[in-house]
Each structure stands twice: as structure tokens, then as C-alpha cells.
Computed example of a mutant assay.
Amino acid sequence: MANVALLGSTGMVGSHILTNLLSNNKVSRVDTISRRAPTVAGDAPQTKLTTVVSDNSSKWAEQFSALTPTPDILISSLGTTRGAAGGFENQYKLDHGVNLDIAKAAREAGTKVYVLISSSGASKDSSIHYSRMKGEIEEGVKELGFERTVILRPGLIAGTREESRPVEAVARFVASWAGKLHSSLKDGWAQESDVIGQAAVKAGLKALEGDVPEGSEKVWLISGKSIIDLATA
């Protein structure tokens, strides 16, 4: 049985990760740290769910360190948009700064597996700000040396968001239309948020058990259609 901590539990992917964690019989405890309580916590309190709610994200690493017992797995789907953050500098502070601060706290506490929801095109050498930031987060986490690090790189995340993102909404409509014609027209570049959530939980538990592909003993990278294949296996 695994103890799991989750960041980004109120987001599009994170909410599905949380649902999967709570329903998984291999998970004994789930801790979330967020600015507001996850919807599932308010609608249907779960005995194995503990929520830490704080609007001061600079305290989250300290709050993670206080979790007892120490989580075996940390899953992060934490992220925001430049618009919601009020500019790229603030977005970087949350997406990069807070993610790595908590990852460091987890590594020091003895967490064994780190699962990161990243993005296709992530690269520390990218000329695109967002992709470079995601790549820098990946590199920072890998340098911490968890027993196993799992990185999911979805393409377009399909599904329904609470907040408005007009450009993404158009792309999600196209993905939905393409998927109805044939899954092969969609699966390589767009994955449903609930499927990503399933894959993240499965990957984290497999990594904890040492059940990872050959050559991925330290860092397991899962992208595109491989996310769907893992979720539906």
C-alpha cells in the first residue's frame, strides 16, 4: 500500500489523478496541498484523503516536510498560465520555483518516486519560454536523484477546463472531432485529461514496485500515445 502526495489536485488533470488515487486499492493515504480544497474533498469526503489548504505557495515545501507518514510517491500536475499568474515571471515562480522547492523537500524527506506532468516539446534549450521552463523543471527534478522519476509529456490536454482558454478550446474541439473520425487522428498529439490522470497513477505505482521498462530504471519518460496505452492497459 502506498502513501501518495499530490500537487495540482484542483486542476484539469490533477482532479482526475485525485479521483484515481482515491479509488485505487493500492493507495492507503492521499495528501493534497493546494490553494483551495479539491472538489472531491468538499463533495464526498474520503477517509484516506487529507487536504492542506494554503494560499501561500511559498510555505508548501515546509508543509510537505511536515506530512506524516512521508509519502512514498509525489505526483505533481501543478501549473498555471501566464495570464492567470500575471505574467511569465510569476508563472515561472509557481511552475518552476514551487515545483522544485517541494521536490527538494520530498527528496530530503525520503519520498521514493516523483511523477511530473510536463508537456510535449519540453526542453531546457527551447526558444519558447513555456517549453524551456518545462524542460528546466524536468532537469531540476532529475538532478535531485529520486529512486525513480516518471515524466509524462502529454500533447494537447483534451477535456473541460473550469477557466476560459479560448485558443485551447478551439484546439480541443478539433481534437474531439478528429477522435470521432478515428483515434489515430488524435492520439498522437492530444490526450484526454482523465486518461492522463489514469496513466500518472499507474506509472507512479509501477515505479514504486520497480515495474518499469528496461532502460527506464531511473527516469521513465512517457509521451503521446504511450500515455494512452499505459492508461488503458
Results as ranks from 00 to 15, higher is better:
Leu74Val: 15
Ile75Gly: 06
Ile75His: 07
Ser76Ile: 01
Ser76Arg: 03
Ser77Trp: 05
Gly79His: 01
Gly79Ser: 04
Gly79Thr: 03
Gly79Val: 07
Thr80Glu: 11
Thr80His: 12
Thr80Trp: 15
Thr81Trp: 09
Thr81Glu: 06
Gly83Ser: 15
Gly83Lys: 14
Gly83Thr: 15
Gly83Arg: 15
Ala84Arg: 06
Ala84Phe: 10
Ala85Asp: 11
Ala85Trp: 09
Gly86Val: 08
Phe88His: 13
Phe88Ile: 09
Phe88Leu: 13
Phe88Tyr: 14
Phe88Ala: 12
Phe88Arg: 02
Glu89His: 09
Asn90Pro: 03
Asn90Asp: 08
Gln91Gly: 03
Tyr92Arg: 13
Tyr92Phe: 10
Lys93Val: 03
Lys93Tyr: 02
Lys93Phe: 05
Leu94Trp: 12
Leu94Gln: 06
Asp95Trp: 07
His96Met: 11
His96Ile: 02
His96Thr: 02
Gly97Cys: 14
Gly97Leu: 14
Val98Ala: 03
Val98Ile: 14
Asn99Gln: 15
Leu100Gly: 04
Leu100Gln: 07
Leu100His: 11
Leu100Ile: 13
Ile102Leu: 14
Ile102Asp: 05
Ile102Glu: 08
Ile102Thr: 10
Ala103Pro: 00
Ala103Asn: 01
Lys104Arg: 14
Ala105Trp: 00
Ala105Asp: 00
Ala106Leu: 09
Ala106Ser: 11
Ala106Asp: 11
Glu108Trp: 11
Glu108Cys: 03
Gly110His: 13
Gly110Ile: 05
Gly110Glu: 04
Gly110Trp: 09
Gly110Val: 09
Gly110Pro: 03
Thr111Lys: 03
Thr111Arg: 00
Lys112Cys: 05
Lys112His: 04
Val113Gln: 07
Val113Pro: 09
Tyr114Gln: 07
Tyr114Val: 12
Leu116Ile: 08
Leu116Gly: 01
Ile117Met: 05
Ser118Ile: 13
Ser119Tyr: 08
Ser119Thr: 14
Ser120Gly: 15
Gly121Lys: 01
Gly121Thr: 03
Gly121Val: 02
Gly121Asn: 05
Ala122Ile: 07
Ala122Ser: 13
Ser123Arg: 06
Lys124Ile: 00
Lys124His: 08
Lys124Thr: 01
Asp125Ser: 12
Asp125Val: 06
Ser126Ala: 01
Ser127Glu: 06
Ile128Tyr: 10
Ile128Pro: 00
Ile128Asn: 12
Ile128Gly: 08
Tyr130Phe: 13
Tyr130Glu: 01
Ser131Asp: 10
Ser131Glu: 11
Ser131Gly: 04
Arg132Lys: 15
Met133Asp: 08
Met133Gln: 12
Met133Gly: 05
Lys134Cys: 04
Lys134Tyr: 06
Lys134Asn: 05
Lys134Gly: 00
Ile137Met: 03
Glu138Lys: 05
Glu138Leu: 01
Glu139Pro: 07
Glu139Phe: 10
Glu139Asn: 12
